[in-house]
Nucleic acid binder design. Structure first.
Lengths: 150, 150
DNA sequence: GTATTTGCAAAAGCTTTGCTGCAAC
DNA sequence: GTTGCAGCAAAGCTTTTGCAAATAC
């Protein structure tokens, strides 16, 4: 795993004061390695602090987004319109969503970095956030499909 | 402008029967060059056929998506959670969304094609849909920011 | 004591769905 | 006469917001 933000330390290092609730939420995001949506995050964080409210979840997510410490994903809207969150890691990566089995693959390559540089240069665009998502069939589901066709 | 689907012809060529309503909707999508959301599409299409309903808009969009003739965009959710639609063109391109002025830039480059090939090969993934969106500041807004800072 | 942040509940925004009736062949 | 699509209205899902009460310092 590539280096991720140490969320709690980083946030407080920036002078933001945290309450018990947002601390529980941030700790939950930190230790969870799957892609969390707001509802799942709420459920998990309530194990640490049962009185957390939905509104606090969204407000904490908003904070972490503003600080640039988490990324918001759509994951091709495979399961409705909700958003997913992940701690930013140093190396930008992309998400492959399988329409068949719902699996999410992550992939990083230097070509992506180069592409970003080209985009920024060609358009004089200052890139803050990147979201590259691809939908299709993972290798397992492609294989299954071929069997079916034969 | 790169070649786009001739939506009406193409859809009917695939044996789909269209009603006056979906025909009006598809014609509207065809001739509109900006990124349309469902509500704007409805408003525009009603000029051709005033009795179109919202549900028909969504059902027609669904059809075109399934046929792979339009792409669905989020445009970094600059204006809420709605989706935007555009007729697919042969060359894949990406969208740059300016957080400051809301402008959407489009950009195409062979590097993106190469990246997709690499992704497909490395993951044995059959890519059906691609969504690359970048958020940040366009050149004008970057310039303004610099002036302010000086 | 003052300034924030929370919880609650309600609203908002966008999309989907069930059902009845209309339309197409 | 069947089959299916449209319109309508309601519901659904996720996110946002206003406000009074609670919390942090």
């Amino acid at each position: 795993m590539l280096p991720r933000w140490e969320l709690l330390n980083e946030v407080e290092a920036r002078g933001v004061r945290l309450t018990a609730q947002s601390r529980a939420l941030i700790a939950t995001i930190q230790e969870t390695t799957t892609h969390l949506d707001a509802a799942s995050l709420l459920n998990l964080a309530r194990k640490r602090n049962p009185k957390i409210d939905r509104a606090t979840v969204y407000r904490t997510i908003e904070l972490l987004k503003k600080l640039g410490m988490i990324d918001e994903l759509d994951l091709m809207h495979l399961n409705g319109e909700k958003h997913y969150y992940e701690v930013k890691i140093q190396q930008e990566h992309l998400h492959l969503a399988c329409f068949e089995c719902g699996q999410i693959l992550e992939f990083a390559t230097p070509v992506f970095e180069r592409l970003k540089q080209e985009i920024a240069a060609a358009n004089q665009f200052e890139i803050h956030v990147t979201r590259l998502e691809l939908g299709g069939l993972c290798s397992a589901c492609t294989a299954k499909k071929k069997v079916r066709v034969q």
